[in-house]
């Protein structure tokens, strides 16, 4: 069943915010655009604050979708290429107003944030020769590195935790893929796309082989 089925939409709408006779009609684009513009303009703090704002505006304030629907949509967005929040925005826009809803939602989210990003970068570039900016940058770069280390861990941690819950062989395979990918890039200087593809294929057959050979015991 699709995540946002016609039946689910009808059921939710009858129970909650919208009237029955409008349940299957797409939302008008203007309020949709305004809602996403407000999210795009004030979502300082990266992905987590943007997701927080989406929930607050779309679920709590407007009541256009349920919290449960956003949670399930977010889970599926994890496997889509690119920025997960843009995938979620696309899905919610489609769900609320079809193709034009996607345009309104993505446009509303991206126009303010991309504009401010360009302006901030332009201001930085016009001032980057100043000593004080260079000094500030020498402080910012280590902080970015620290946040990047954390991000790397956050990318790997849920996958390693799943493997650990299965058995030690699965955990060993996951650690091997993690370290192997890093070594492939550093030591062998393999093209990244080849490393990613090879790791995906190793994962496909490695985890399947482990599941068929039924190793026992968690870690």
């Amino acid at each position: 069943m699709p995540l946002f089925s016609r039946q689910r939409w009808e059921t939710r709408s009858k129970a909650n915010t919208r009237q029955d006779d409008t349940a299957l009609q797409p939302l008008p684009l203007l309020p949709l655009l305004l809602a996403w513009l407000s999210i795009g303009g004030q979502s300082f703090g990266g992905g987590s604050s943007t997701l927080f704002l989406i929930r607050r505006v779309i679920v709590e304030q407007r009541g256009w979708v349920s919290d449960d629907e956003v949670t399930k949509a977010w889970a599926i967005c994890q496997i889509v290429p690119g920025i997960n929040l843009l995938a979620l925005t696309t899905l919610l826009g489609w769900r609320l107003s079809g193709a034009w809803g996607v345009v309104a939602a993505l446009g509303g989210l991206l126009v303010p944030s991309v504009t401010l990003t360009i302006v901030a970068t332009a201001i930085y570039r016009s001032m980057q020769h100043l000593n004080v900016i260079q000094a500030a940058l020498r402080g910012i770069i280590p902080a970015t590195i620290g946040l990047g280390i954390l991000m790397s861990w956050q990318l790997a941690h849920p996958l390693l935790r799943s493997s650990r819950a299965e058995n030690w062989q699965s955990l060993a395979l996951s650690l091997g893929l993690l370290v192997g990918a890093a070594l492939g890039v550093v030591m062998l200087r393999m093209p990244i796309v080849l490393v990613l593809g090879a790791a995906g294929l190793c994962g496909t057959f490695g985890y399947h082989w482990l599941s068929r050979n039924k190793p026992t015991g968690g870690v």
Binding site: S152, L160, S174, L178, V195, G206
Partner: peptide, 9 residues
């Protein structure tokens, strides 16, 4: 899973 681990590494 393999792809995600390689991206992290």
């Amino acid at each position: 899973r393999g792809l995600g681990l390689a991206v992290a590494g």
